[in-house]
Computed example of a mutant assay.
Amino acid sequence: MTFTDEQLALQDTVRNVLGRHPDPWPVLCAQVGVAALAVPERHGGLGAGLREVQIVAEELGRVLSPAPFLGSAVLATHAILETADEEAAKRLLPRLAEGTLAALGWATEDGSWDPDRTAFSARGSVVDGHAHYVLEGDLAEVLLVVAETDGELGLFEVDPAQARRVHTPTMDESRHLAEIEVTGAEATRVGTGDFRPALHRLRDTACAVLAAEQVGAAARALDITVAYSRQREQFGRPIGGFQALKHRMADLYVLVETARSAAYAVTEPDADVAHLAAVAKTYCSEVFSRVAAEMIQLHGGIAITWEHEAHRFFKRAHGAGQLFGQPHHHLPRVVPTLE
């Protein structure tokens, strides 16, 4: 896996912005164009590919950024693109490219991100339903929902003023989630035909980007742990010099690097995207959870204090593992059931 010079420049630029600005999202949008990456040039975007989106996600993951990239610039933007509705794209995508927040309501109360299910139903242009775990749902200026209508699924745009939107406090305070409830809301359908095939592709895209974010967070957690092992002394020497701990950290390094390969394999030429996205979501979730747990173990008592950042990585690992389906939900796509 290699990056082009342009991709490396994007990586460096995003990392520098994140390191310099306490509130980096406006700068990332205005000066780097991260919200416009996936938007076609004809709609005011940069027309970049999925790998560029993943590169940004990995850098955001390194600092556990609460930036609304995944929910707005990835999930909502790609939902609009999947409809191939040029009128809606012309109306909505230029706003999203400038950084206007959008949200997609889809998941049910049980945390299902099944592309064949949704939390909403529609009768004509009237939508009802109650979605959970909506990324940036209570902050979005553009609200999209997936609703069942006449035996098929469709994408609808709902006026945020017609929705009851409530922020959902979670263990991971760096991920902004909300519940969205609409009752008899007038909505505009985006695109035509059954949205189910597009929803499968949308989940794969979201899983691939989330996997890159998880890799960034896991890599940073390991960096912090290795640095600590070189400073913390026991029996008159740094604990990083003990062979048993060297082996544990070497194992974690292998896990992180193989997780990075799994995440970016989705964007390789001729990739089986559906299969590899499932592999990436399953493997990167498990790796991040393992690294976060080992971070706490290898730091010892200091890691269970609020003052240390280890608990933030552990919480993000747990929350990210649930998003877009837990790892075991994707396993049947990784290893199909044998007849």
Rank of each mutant, 00 (worst) to 15 (best):
T2W: 11
D5R: 12
L8I: 05
A9S: 14
L10P: 05
R15L: 03
V17Q: 02
G19A: 07
H21L: 10
P24F: 10
V27N: 04
L28E: 07
C29F: 05
C29S: 06
A30E: 06
Q31C: 08
A36E: 09
P40T: 14
E41W: 00
R42F: 09
R42C: 09
G44R: 11
L50P: 02
Q54T: 03
E59R: 12
G61L: 02
S65F: 05
P66T: 11
P68M: 09
L70C: 15
L75M: 09
T83W: 01
D85C: 09
E86I: 13
A88L: 07
A89N: 01
L96Q: 10
E98F: 11
T100E: 13
T100V: 15
T100G: 09
G105Y: 12
E109A: 15
E109N: 11
D110W: 05
D116P: 01
G124A: 00
G124S: 00
D128I: 02
A131Y: 01
L135S: 10
L135A: 10
L139P: 06
V142F: 03
L143K: 00
V146Y: 00
E148G: 02
T149A: 12
G151T: 04
L153E: 00
G154E: 05
E157V: 05
E157P: 01
E157Q: 14
V158M: 03
D159Y: 11
A161M: 07
P169M: 13
T170S: 10
E179A: 15
G184V: 00
E186Q: 12
A187Y: 00
V190Q: 07
G191V: 00
G193F: 04
P197A: 02
H200R: 15
R201S: 07
V209A: 01
L210P: 00
A211Q: 08
A212R: 01
V215Q: 00
V215C: 02
A218E: 04
I224N: 14
A227W: 07
S229I: 02
R232D: 03
R232C: 03
R232I: 05
F235K: 13
G236Y: 04
R237F: 08
P238H: 01
I239C: 03
I239K: 04
G241E: 14
Q243H: 08
Q243D: 07
A244Q: 10
L245E: 09
H247M: 10
M249T: 12
D251P: 07
V256L: 05
E257I: 11
R260E: 06
A262N: 03
A262G: 02
V266E: 03
E268S: 10
P269S: 06
A274W: 14
T282R: 12
F288A: 09
V291S: 12
A293R: 14
M295C: 05
H299A: 06
H299R: 11
I302K: 11
T305C: 15
E307R: 12
E309W: 04
K315I: 09
Q322S: 14
V334N: 07
V334I: 13
